[in-house]
Every structure is written in C-alpha cells, then in structure tokens.
C-alpha cells in the first residue's frame, strides 16, 4: 500500500486517495486549437521512473496534491498542494518546500 504524505493531513494510505493523472500536463486555454487539446487530453508518456501525478485526498481533506513518484519502486519523493496559492502559503508557514521534507514514514 502506497502511503502519501498529505501536506494537510500527514501520512495516509493511498486508499484514502483517488488517482488523478499526469501532473506535468499544462491544459491549454479553453479556446486553444484542437491539436493542443488532443495533445493535452490523449497523449501521455508511459514513464518508467519518476513522474509527477495528481492525487485527490477524496476521503480526507479533499485537497488535490501533486505527488512525485517512481513508477517502478513506488517511492514518493515529494507531495505538494496542487493549488499554487495554497502551496506558497504553506511554504511560507513551514519555511521550507515540501520536497525538502523527510519522506520516510
């Protein structure tokens, strides 16, 4: 069972979360071209290694988080709020970025 260090709740089992998708995707403007949208919605890299992905703490604080995970070992190296504003506030409060924190449960 993967355990995710939710920035708001602490270490929680992955069964409290739902998987979102590739967090590296930058969704285009709503009026962007069909090609840009097809690329964002359908084209994915099948990464063998570290990838950034979104998870929803749906049975917890209901926050979306960005998890940096090794797809081979499931090792998680960082968990950050997906919301940019909240991320900045949290970093200001704790004085460090969440990727610096010790990830060992």
């Amino acid at each position: 069972m993967i355990r995710i260090n939710c920035p708001f709740c602490g270490f929680r089992d992955h069964s409290e979360f739902t998987y979102g998708g590739d967090a590296s995707i930058v969704f285009p403007d709503l009026d962007a071209s069909s090609e840009a949208w097809i690329d964002a919605v359908f084209h994915r890299d099948n990464i063998d290694g570290v990838q950034r992905e979104t998870w929803h703490h749906v049975h917890g604080c209901r926050m979306w988080v960005v998890v940096t995970r090794d797809t081979v070992t499931h090792e998680i190296s960082a968990v950050e709020p997906a919301h940019q504003g909240i991320k900045l506030v949290l970093e200001a409060m704790t004085g460090l970025s969440s990727s610096d924190e010790d990830q060992q449960p």
Partner: peptide, 13 residues
C-alpha cells in the same frame, strides 16, 4: 464535486 475541485485546484488556481 471531485471534478470541480480538480479544476479549481489544479488548473484554475
């Protein structure tokens, strides 16, 4: 509900 939260937090902060 989850979709609205996703949009607000991951795309349209």
């Amino acid at each position: 509900m989850a979709w609205l939260e996703e949009l607000l937090q991951t795309r349209w902060s």
